[in-house]
Design a binder for these strands. Structure first.
Lengths: 346, 346
DNA sequence: TACACATGCTGAATCGAATCAGCACGATCA
DNA sequence: TGATCGTGCTGATTCGATTCAGCATGTGTA
């Protein structure tokens, strides 16, 4: 049934009654260019089918110096949502182009990173995706200049490498629009710190203020806290205990939103009856809260897919930062619009 | 500074004043076996350093038919916790052994799976990790028999392939022990369905009952629902509305626990004052709940690491199912022990 | 008849390392 | 003195594909 051993190109050629050269031309799609006759081409294809021939990738790699692989180097593959969804998008985009993903996790260790980059270059990956868990400005490792590289979820202001990041500023505007469109009247506050070395926080905040300014409003205060459930709970709890009674809260990510939900519940404040809440990231967690929190989603899958596409599509590797839109995930954390009112747009 | 071009083995040999053969012997660790003189070996090593020589992987692959890569085929890389943590463990274990991970996601599509397996075999990966998101019995794809393969989080009763799975039964016992050790007195119920084609649910339940039977107790009822937050909330809410007042609830995973928390809160029941809760999976979500829910964790990282190890370590590839222990993650969802009482053990 | 030209193919070199078989040389032994 | 043996190395081949340069034909043109 199965061939006794692995057939190679010369076996195919012999069986088709042609030279290995001709067989190669057929299989690499150069048949027309090389004026291979219709009949010879057919015989080669038939021999391939009969022998179950599959080219030896290593031999091809050696000869062509290309491997049909894309390297993915990220700081934390492990940290759930972002990296893994991004990988899914990248994996599919790569497979469509007959490529596979080679991955490595640095755990934030510069030495491991150097090692991984070298490994990948040694293995002649056709390109590298350099991914960070948190959206931030970085300095790309020197070695990466030796290969086609695309940055994902980060960018280097001093480097011409192409980068794909979420449009955090636009996302901020979207979040603010959600509250405005729902006619939220009280003060609007932001929960979560905005450390300067990451761009997600500052840009989300800037976008929020930008949108609010259009209607003569602004963020009343920022309640700073790490982007974590417990920290957000504690900060919000303490803040509410001072008597603060916000109309709308914009949480800088879904984990913060969860902490905020806990704190609001503890103070007997209803969502969305007493307080409207909007969040960022669009993780599953957003859908788990009661009511679901409206969340401005990171375009996880898109980022991976677009990055791979630009890496593999000829000519698609333009320098510069591409900002992908952050779609809105629905929820029940702001009051429903009166039915007569027109559907707003951002 | 950097060599004008890529140095190859023959360049190293020339510079060291030896033949390529000798240089190769030195670099492949066969210097002693081949009786290469101390001085020749030194000269080769120095030449390597001076030229910044790095072997061409493709050439090595072709010659040796091995690639120092491990293929990972999983149904859903994307679905967050399990796969990504597993990848982290696998990635590190692989890197330690000078291997890289080549990944592919099937999205549960059998055709894509076939394609991926072929791709990986074509690329001569040294072994394949076949991973499922959900712990279940499977039928391994025929093609996998052609390669070294290890199953992760699943097993095939009709195949001798080595498999690594969590010890779900033991985990069930652990969960029950948590309630017993805390002297929970009321009825103990389980929340979550136990579909037969997956083994996690049924085995967790069996373990729970096994442990309870040791003290003459048993699970009073199972509240069936999909392992999802909203479904668990609704099922538990409806169940509590009938007047049920459990002493302890064992949730079959952390998402179920979150739904249960929501339902208990709605009925004014305090955790752990009125009801004790224990859960499974040990995801981050468990730590986000207030109070943290005690969770019997899936040994994510370990599974990946052990699987890679058994794949790459010579002789370590024994057939059969290996069950890795599920460690307990602490939390505040059962009453604290009276301080005088001795620390129990499972 | 001769010459150019298109057609349809092939031989041989190449990519860069690994490895088998064997060679030259000096020391040892009978 | 010649045979034997250990030491330290190397030449040539191989892995399996890609690809350049060129070689027979047949066909049209002067």
């Amino acid at each position: 049934m199965s061939p006794r051993s692995k057939a190679k190109l010369s076996d195919v050629a012999t069986r088709a009654g042609v030279s290995a050269t001709t067989a190669s031309y057929v299989l690499t799609g150069r048949a027309t260019e090389m004026r291979i006759s219709e009949s010879a081409e057919q015989r080669v294809r038939q021999a391939v089918a009969e022998l179950g021939y599959r080219p030896n990738r290593s031999a091809q790699n050696l000869r062509t110096s290309r491997t049909s692989t894309v390297g993915v180097i990220s700081d934390f593959v492990a940290s759930g949502h972002f990296s893994s969804q991004m990988l899914a998008g990248a994996s599919e985009a790569a497979l469509q182009r007959d490529h596979l993903l080679v991955i490595g996790e640095t755990s934030g260790d510069a030495e491991v990173e150097r090692l991984l980059i070298e490994e990948m270059i040694d293995r002649q990956v056709d390109g590298i995706l350099y991914v960070t868990r948190t959206g931030m400005e970085i300095q790309v490792p020197e070695k990466l200049a030796e290969t086609r590289t695309v940055l994902v979820n980060c960018f280097d202001p001093d480097s011409p490498l192409p980068a794909f990041v979420p449009d955090e500023f636009g996302g901020g505007r979207t979040a603010a629009s959600v509250l405005l469109d729902a006619d939220v009247t009280g003060d609007i506050h932001v929960v979560g710190e905005t450390p300067p070395h990451t761009f997600a926080g500052p840009q989300r905040l800037a976008g929020i203020n930008d949108r609010l300014a259009e209607v003569g409003r602004s963020v009343t205060s920022v309640v700073p806290c790490p982007w974590a459930v417990e920290a957000a709970y504690e900060a919000t709890h303490a803040w509410l205990a001072t008597g603060a009674r916000p109309g709308g809260l914009i949480c800088l990510n879904d984990r913060v939103a969860m902490g905020v939900y806990q704190a609001l519940a503890e103070h007997g404040l209803d969502i969305p009856g007493d307080v409207s809440v909007v969040s960022f990231d669009g993780t599953e967690l957003a859908t788990w809260l009661r009511p679901r929190v409206i969340s401005v989603a990171l375009p996880f899958v898109e980022l991976g897919a677009r990055a791979v596409q630009s890496l593999l599509e000829p000519g698609a590797l333009a320098p510069g930062v591409v900002r992908l839109p952050m779609p809105l995930m629905p929820g029940g954390s702001v009051p429903a619009l009166p039915p007569t009112k027109e559907q707003p747009h951002v």
